[in-house]
């Protein structure tokens, strides 16, 4: 733990594409933490046997389970594509304002498209 300068709080800023995408990156990151806890529960239920797996399965195939899974898949694609955008920035690429805006829109479109493709190909919505 270090005493470095911390970022000013959100309500200071007027929402812009750049700042909204940035905070969504953090938001999806926190949500994905819940997702990996669910992944862990899935693995533990599998290891415990068929009975516990069926209880878990009943919840994940319910409407709230589906809702969570869909949000999880979108968050994952968002965090993944925006993460790649961050890695480009770390190499000093695409840091000027107009490129940042363009890559932001492209990233958002790609993550939505990938989510829809996954939902359709994986046939997630039907039970």
């Amino acid at each position: 733990m270090v005493n470095r300068p911390i970022s000013p709080h959100l309500q200071i800023y007027k929402p812009q594409l750049t700042s909204v995408l940035s905070i969504t990156h953090r938001g999806t990151g926190v949500f994905l933490c819940l997702g990996i806890l669910l992944l862990t529960t899935w693995l533990v239920c599998l290891a415990l046997g068929e009975e516990s797996y069926n209880i878990f399965y009943k919840h994940t195939t319910s409407w709230y389970g589906k809702l969570f899974l869909i949000s999880f898949i979108f968050s994952l694609f968002y965090h993944l594509t925006n993460g790649i955008r961050h890695l480009f920035w770390d190499f000093g690429l695409g840091l000027d304002l107009s490129t940042t805006y363009k890559s932001g829109y492209v990233m958002l479109c790609i993550s939505i498209l990938l989510t829809l493709t996954t939902l359709i190909l994986g046939d997630v919505l039907t039970i």
Binding site: E50, Y57, L69, I73, L76, G83, T118, L121
Partner: peptide, 22 residues
């Protein structure tokens, strides 16, 4: 950076495994 390729495998897997039986 390591998670980028791993996630492609992971998303593919959980999508198809989310409805699979035991």
């Amino acid at each position: 950076a390591i998670l980028v390729p791993l996630n492609l495998w992971f998303i593919y897997s959980i999508t198809f495994m989310s409805k699979a039986n035991y």
